[in-house]
Simulated assay, not measured.
Amino acid sequence: MELFTTVGTTLEGPNGRYRVIKEVARGGMGAVYRAEDLTHQRYVAIKEACLDPVACEGKRDQIRARLLHEMRILKPLSHPCIPRIFDQFSSHNNEYLVMEFIEGQTLMQIQQRTLRQKRLLEEPRVLGWLIQVLDALDYLHTRPQPIIHRDIKPENLILTPDGRVMLVDFGLMKQVEEQLSETGPLTEATGTVEYAPPEQYAQSGASTDARSDIYSLGATFYYLLAGRLPPRSVDRMMPLSIDVTRKPPSLRKINPTVSARTEQVIFKALEVDPEHRYQSAAQMRRALLPPRRFILLPF
């Protein structure tokens, strides 16, 4: 059995035939490919969950469940900043998810290039991105069964050539009020430690909700404006006797393009206690954009 699909392979699902063009990314339990949809004459991204028992360390059921979970929840969604889902199928004991291929650069790639040039991103440009992500989160969080992304970070935000910011990689998402077993798709949904809120860790005993995405968004955009990460939430929760940095350094002292309003909004999003954060993406957006203020999106 092939552990991973090779370039040139043609895969067949219920909604199309797909010729793999190149490997885009690979991890310990799967890969992502760019492919040509031969049925609909378009380019797509194919996420492959490698279900080999050795390569996946005996977690086949969990990996398969996570991919099916992602397919079921994302397929009905329709938002300009969320990739569309086209197909899902099994082949040679692996699972495949076919979705819209997003051209562009991640915000992490843009930030890294900017830092190599010894510059910082300017506030108007970054706010244009932030407003788009808040709109996408408001759409997800206000659905009949709200969807929590749980892994917002610069690597999961792609700026397209037409100026859209796409929110990608929903592998750790949670649908509120959904019951999942211990072997279900979300047992290890910790996220990325540099951006994750404290309640996202199992040992915290707390549950995640829309405010968890607000924290991760605050950490992401603090990094984009400051060129450095804020203190990790797990460190900020340490006992006072342990010497760690607890409060993020002032954005305005690091980046002179940042306004007092924007700094205040980012810091409120980064509150350790969810009750002290913005309670919704819409509330955070209103704080950033008071009436009659307009921000140009970066095209």
Score class of each variant (00 low, 15 high):
3 L>S: 13
12 E>I: 05
12 E>C: 03
21 I>C: 07
41 Q>W: 06
41 Q>V: 05
45 A>L: 10
48 E>W: 01
53 P>A: 00
58 G>T: 04
60 R>S: 07
62 Q>V: 15
62 Q>R: 15
62 Q>S: 14
76 P>Q: 11
80 P>F: 13
87 D>H: 09
91 S>I: 11
94 N>T: 11
97 L>V: 10
99 M>Q: 14
103 E>A: 10
106 T>H: 08
109 Q>H: 02
113 R>G: 10
119 R>M: 10
120 L>R: 10
120 L>F: 08
130 L>Q: 05
143 R>F: 04
153 K>C: 05
158 I>D: 08
160 T>V: 06
163 G>Q: 13
167 L>M: 15
170 F>T: 10
173 M>Y: 11
175 Q>N: 03
176 V>L: 02
179 Q>S: 09
180 L>Y: 00
184 G>P: 00
205 G>I: 03
205 G>C: 01
209 D>M: 06
212 S>D: 11
213 D>K: 09
214 I>H: 05
217 L>W: 04
219 A>Y: 05
222 Y>E: 02
225 L>T: 05
226 A>V: 11
227 G>W: 12
229 L>R: 09
230 P>D: 05
231 P>V: 00
232 R>I: 03
236 R>M: 03
240 L>R: 08
240 L>N: 09
250 S>Q: 02
255 N>I: 01
264 Q>R: 13
268 K>N: 13
268 K>P: 11
268 K>D: 14
275 E>F: 07
282 A>P: 01
282 A>E: 09
289 L>Q: 15
297 L>A: 15
299 F>V: 15
